[in-house]
Nucleic acid binder design. Structure first.
Lengths: 307, 307
DNA sequence: GCCCGGTCATACGTTGACGGCATGACCTCG
DNA sequence: CGAGGTCATGCCGTCAACGTATGACCGGGC
C-alpha cells in the first residue's frame, strides 16, 4: 500500500542481471554508478530481500534476485507498453502510418501490436487515432487514414474489411453477487430485469448488447446506471450488487484473480468480430498490410487469454 | 528512454477513472488533493496528451484517457505482482503457509497463484521458499514445508506428487541468427555442435536438457558459455549469435514481440511436467490443498500463453 | 612482482522536486 | 442565495536524490 511505485530500481536490477555489473547497468540508464549502488541497496531494504551478491569483479543475482528479476521484467514490459502506446496517441504530427481504432481494440490489442511492429520496423512511427466505431469508419472512408479497426457486428458496404479476431461480451458480477455461484444460465429476460452497469450510449459495447437483446425480443430499460469508463464499470461491478457487461478482453485479468466472475447467459449471442477496415480504393500495402497480418497472427496465437 | 518510470501518476489516473473525482482518488492514495492535481497535469504534459476533462463537478476521462487507463491497469497489475511476490519471499517469519518452489515455477507461475490466493484468503500470509529441485525436495521430506513445486522429469518415491502443469524447453535465437528462418528441425547433433548459452550446472533447465540429450545419445561439450541468470541467457541470445535453451514460460513475451525466435528441434523430448510434491505422511489440506487446486485450474485455463 | 583497469561502497555539498497548507474560482444542489 | 462539492494556483519548507570525489578491493597483463 505505502509503496514507492518507482520502477527505476527494478529496471536497474534487470539490467544488472543482464550485464553482470552495477556500473554497466547504471551507464545504460544514464545514471552515475554510486546512485545505482545506492538505489539497489534501497530496493533491497524496501523489499527486505538480498537480491545481489556483490563481488569485487561484478555482481551476481541470488536465487531470490532471479525470481524478482523475472517478475520485474513483466512489470517493466507493462509500463513500456503504456509509454509506447502514449507516444502513438500523441505523435499525430510525425507519424508515418496512422491507424484509426475503436476503444476495445486500442485498449486491449494495440499494445502488443505496437510493440511487435516497432521491433520489425524501428524507423516507422505509428500513430493511434482512437474513437468510436462511427468515428473510425468516417476516417477510413474520408481517406484521412489508410486503415482502421472496429468491433462492430457489421460494417457498411462503403468499406472493405477482414476479420482479424473475435470477441465476446461477458456478464460479470462481483464474487458476492447472487449470480456469482449460479450454474444455470441467466436468461435475457432476467438480464433486462436486473440492475446493470453499462457504458454510456454510443459505445460499441453498449450497441452490441442492445442489438443482441433486440434479436432476442428484449429491450433495455432506461433506469440503468451509466458510467463513463470501462474501468468504472468494472470497479462498480466488483464492489456492488449490480452486474456489468464488458468485453472478455477487458476482464481477463480480473477473472483470473477472482475479482470478477463471469455469469453464463442463455438466449443471447454476444460475440462479435474485430475487423480491419479500409477504403476499397486504397487496399492496405506496405506497413499497413504488415500491421493487418501481424494483428491476425497475434489473435490466433493467443485465442482468448491475455495479460 | 528518458522516462520517469514513476507509476504514481498512472495509479492516480486509474483511480480517477474509477471514482470520477481527482480529490477522491487523492484520498485513496493518502495524498493531498493539490498534489494529485499537479501530478496529473504533469503526467499529461509528459505524455503530451489530454487525459481528463475537468469539470467543476468532477473529472471525466477523454477517449485517450480511457485507453491509457486500460494500459495502465495492466502495468500496475504487473508491479503489484512484483510487490506481492517480494513480500512472499521475505515474510518467512509471519507466514501461515510456506511453500517451496523451483525457479521456473516461482518466476512464471507463482505470481498469478499468489494474487488469486490472496484474494480468496486475504488473512493468510503465504511465503515462497525458492531453490533448485533438490532443495525443494529436501524441504518437503524433512517436513520443514508442507508443499513444494518442482519441474523435475521424475521425483523420488519418498514424496507424493501430482502434475499441475506441463512445460517445455525451447531453443531460441535472436532474429538475426541463421536458425531464425529455419523451417527444417535442428537435430540434436547440430545442437551440441553449436554455440549455446546455458544456465550454470545444477539448474533444473540445464539438467532437463542434459537428460534429453543423453536419451538421444548425445552429450554437451564443455566449452559452453554459462550465464548466471535466465535474464542474462535471454539477453545474450537476443543480441548475439548463440542459441539459448530456456523454458517456454520464460520467453512467451519475447516470442510475441519477435525479440526471440523459437527453433524447431528434432530427436529431443524437451517437455517436462511441473509437479506439486508433498510428504506422504502429510497430505495437503486446507490452504495448501487450495493452492494445489488453484494451480491446476490456472494451468488448464491458460495452457501455454501468458504475460 | 607491480601496476593498470575494472569492480563496488562511502562521503559530502547542492539543488531541485515534491508535499502540505491556504486560497480562490467555479458549479450544483437544496 | 448560501452550503458543499469540485479543481487550480501560489508560497514555502524539507528532504531526497544527484554528481563529484575518493577509497577499498580484486584480477589480469607486461
Amino acid at each position: 500500500m505505502t509503496s514507492p511505485l518507482d520502477l527505476t530500481g527494478l529496471d536497474l536490477l534487470v539490467r544488472v542481471a543482464e550485464t553482470g555489473s552495477v556500473g554497466a547497468a547504471a551507464r545504460q540508464l544514464g545514471m552515475a554508478q554510486p546512485n545505482a549502488s545506492r538505489l539497489l541497496a534501497k530496493l533491497e531494504r524496501q523489499l527486505d530481500l538480498t537480491l545481489l551478491v556483490r563481488t569485487t569483479a561484478g555482481s551476481r543475482l541470488t536465487t531470490e534476485g532471479e525470481v524478482v528479476v523475472a517478475w520485474a521484467r513483466d512489470a517493466l514490459a507493462g509500463v513500456e507498453r503504456v509509454l509506447l502506446g502514449a507516444r502513438s496517441l500523441a505523435a499525430q504530427r510525425k507519424a508515418h502510418l496512422t491507424v484509426a481504432s475503436s476503444l476495445t481494440v486500442a485498449e486491449h490489442l494495440a499494445p502488443r501490436w505496437l510493440a511487435r511492429f516497432r521491433r520489425e520496423h524501428p524507423d516507422l512511427h505509428v500513430s493511434l487515432d482512437v474513437g468510436n466505431s462511427h468515428h473510425v469508419l468516417e476516417r477510413v472512408v474520408s481517406g484521412r487514414v489508410p486503415l482502421g479497426f472496429v468491433e462492430s457486428p457489421t460494417v457498411p458496404r462503403t468499406v472493405a474489411s477482414t476479420t482479424v479476431a473475435r470477441d465476446r461480451l461477458l456478464v460479470v458480477v462481483g464474487p458476492t453477487h447472487a449470480w456469482a455461484r449460479r450454474r444455470t444460465p441467466v436468461t435475457a429476460a432476467e438480464l433486462v430485469g436486473s440492475d446493470l452497469v453499462l457504458r454510456e450510449a454510443g459505445s460499441g459495447t453498449r450497441e452490441t448488447l442492445v442489438r443482441a437483446l433486440d434479436l432476442a425480443g428484449h429491450a433495455l430499460g432506461e433506469q440503468r446506471l451509466e458510467l463513463a469508463s470501462t474501468a468504472a464499470v468494472k470497479a462498480a461491478a466488483a464492489e456492488g450488487g449490480a452486474a456489468g457487461v464488458v468485453s472478455e478482453l477487458a476482464v481477463a485479468a480480473e477473472l483470473a484473480t477472482g475479482q470478477l466472475v463471469a455469469v453464463p447467459v442463455a438466449d443471447l449471442d454476444l460475440s462479435r468480430s474485430l475487423r480491419a477496415v479500409w477504403s476499397p480504393e486504397r487496399r492496405p500495402e506496405g506497413p499497413a498490410a504488415a500491421l493487418v497480418r501481424l494483428a491476425r497472427a497475434d489473435a490466433q496465437a493467443s485465442p482468448s487469454s491475455s495479460v
